[in-house]
Design a binder for these strands. Structure first.
Lengths: 384, 384
DNA sequence: TACCCTAAGGAATAGGTTTTCTCTAGTAAG
DNA sequence: CTTACTAGAGAAAACCTATTCCTTAGGGTA
């Protein structure tokens, strides 16, 4: 690295340097760079040139100190940035980044002491607002912030029902699943889901039951099989369900993991999916849903939208137009082979769920001591 | 909300307010709060009391402006905070948080324009350093920062081989798998992995081959089956492998997803795992590895350690003790039933992979209007 | 009494930027 | 010729804190 020796001007150039270079005062330079005040075009150009030449970037700290706002927000999650908070975070970051707002991320690991500590830190940093996300939609105790710092809850909510919270539509997701089954002529539905102590599980079940009832179908809330959020429970639940209700022709699962387990057991028991039994999962967790055989139809909670919406509410609050109460973001159903015999029959022709077909690579000459074929495939796949 | 009307002092209290309240000058208040200078104990106590009473928290911006450093770093990922960058991020945040350093997270979505934009933002915010993470370990073009801002690459590396980079041990991971097989007496190994254009895939294969060769076994690099990172390829690859080498008794897979596909096909073909064929995955991605039947032995790259180590190197660089070149963080093998017949035979007695057995919840009366039967499973799982 | 020393705390400065106010010179109107 | 106004640019205040340098008062010593 050449720049180990900091050189004469390791200090980042300030507006003072720009002003000197352009032969104007500091105030004039500021006005020129920000398009303020009355200046000759020639002067503006000169300052701009100087700034470019020096690689000047205004010190956001100084600006924030003066303006009284930092154009930054804190994002607190209790979830170790798990599967649910990530998309929320991404959506929020997206919406905020467009407004030139930066995000401090804080992972409390569900530890109140850490939460306290992060909160103090964020307050010291004078963030303009706070987004709180979690992995469960159950109301949590309100986060204590000093007045003037707005808070929005995303994928969780406060016990204080007046505080703004953005939630996915678990209830509506359950309805989507039920209606999809009903539209396909399925009349013997089942439901295998997570623990009943999860509000999300109860809401999904509730929406499912309600939609079936509205259509004149029969499925009692008492028939819902609550268990845990695991493939193992999916396998077990499928055995229980088939045993209790051999004619079942449609199973809605509370998560894609459960659905994977169910799918596994159905195949073992000789039931064809979707022909004999249609299957719908929840979360649209692609590695899970696409990896299943056949790929899973699944309810997508649109968590990025949840995050984006939360960010928009926060921006509104920062601009003195706070919102109140819970807002629900609609879910959508992503239809794949596990629920649709027609898709299923076509699936043989398709090679990949995303992108064009590609032949598997075969072994070839070695490179670096390891055998490897020429990498003559296309480069769409990019997980690894 | 009571505090909609900001009230007389919506402004956060400053040290000036504290000083006034305590009846001292600003300088004295500062010294009292920071334990500097010569002050009477009584004075310090008075200032501390005033600060507590007012809920004073020093303005980090002002302090940073003065000190010339911000106690913040930028974390740039090209990976949309995917499966690999998350643990890295978590580890980094952990190590930095302990040093009271906050993290700005930036997701470039692999778009150079966004990267540029985030970089400018971070420079404007005068971060003390930068961590760059990616989803692939292939060298990438060096990120262009002004002098004085140290950079550490994590889970990726720079084309400039002198810049510090922390990588997982793909090669060593392959060796771990091979040695585990060999120690269990397996003599007919196979390997199914992702695309050969991925350096990680080649390194894993290389370590696997090398360890077998060292032990006097036979497995030619030409026998490695390169494909894609999907369950589907796992299924397909298993068919190919079994066809070409019917006596295979151990299969190492380049990812847990591939291993799931392989596991599926083996069962379909009537091979018992692990009795007939032992199976090892890669990534130790718990939802995948634990959900498999039987649960997968898998190589864990210890990505949190990668992140933590990267943060430590960055801290060193910030403190004028920069490091150079690539450092490899060891992987470890997490042994589960898929590779170990003895574990397998015991597994029936075990209920959960993590933590002690705990009595199942019993279905209580319904709650929230949805009826529910007993949820007789255990309650360790807390995703959902 | 004159001097020095110390303890305690105040004043001032720096850090980088934006904004408001002020100043100068030039121009147009009366 | 005087007045009023405008364009253009500089000077200074403000944001908040940490630190360095000063001031003051009091006590001790010669």
């Amino acid at each position: 690295m050449p720049q180990v020796e900091p050189g004469p001007d390791s200090r980042r150039p300030t507006i003072r340097d720009v002003a000197a270079q352009a032969g104007v005062s500091i105030g004039t330079a500021s006005k020129a760079l920000n398009g303020q005040g009355k200046l000759r075009d020639e002067t503006r150009a000169r300052v701009a040139a100087a700034a470019r030449e020096l690689g000047f970037a205004p010190n956001v700290l100084a600006r924030a100190l003066l303006a009284g706002r930092t154009y930054s927000v804190g994002l607190i999650t209790t979830d170790s940035f798990g599967r649910f908070s990530i998309p929320v975070m991404l959506g929020a970051e997206d919406a905020l980044g467009a407004g030139q707002i930066s995000v401090f991320m804080c992972d409390t690991r569900d530890d109140p002491a850490r939460e306290r500590q992060y909160l103090d830190m964020l307050i010291s940093r004078r963030v303009d607002g706070l987004i709180v996300t979690g992995r469960r939609i159950e109301p949590r105790s309100s986060i204590s912030t000093p007045p003037g710092i707005p808070v929005v809850y995303a994928m969780t909510q406060s016990l204080d029902t007046d505080e703004p919270a953005i939630l996915p539509d678990d209830y509506g997701g359950g309805m989507l699943a039920a209606r999809h089954f009903l539209a396909a002529g399925r009349r013997r539905p089942g439901h295998i889901t997570g623990p009943a102590r999860f509000l999300a599980a109860r809401k999904r079940a509730s929406g499912y039951c309600e939609a079936i009832a509205q259509a004149g179908g029969h499925f009692s809330p008492a028939e819902v099989l609550y268990g845990e959020w695991s493939e193992r429970w999916g396998r077990e639940g499928a055995h229980i369900l088939i045993g209790a209700n051999p004619g079942v022709d449609a199973i809605f699962c509370g998560s894609d993991q459960i659905a994977r387990g169910v799918s596994d057991t159905l195949r073992l028991l000789g039931h064809r999916v979707p022909h004999d039994i249609a299957l719908i999962g929840f979360d649209n967790w692609e590695p899970m849903a696409l990896g299943a055989e056949p790929p899973l139809t699944s309810v997508d909670m649109c968590l990025e939208d949840v995050g984006r919406t939360a960010a928009e509410h926060l921006l509104a609050a920062i601009n003195d137009a706070p919102t109140h109460g819970v807002q629900i973001v609609p879910s959508r159903l992503v239809i794949r082979e596990s629920s649709d015999p027609q898709l299923q029959s076509r699936s043989a022709a398709r090679r990949s769920d995303r992108g064009p077909a590609m032949p598997p690579e075969q072994g070839g000459p070695d490179e670096s001591g390891v055998a490897m074929p020429g990498s003559e495939q296309n480069a769409t796949g990019d997980d690894g």
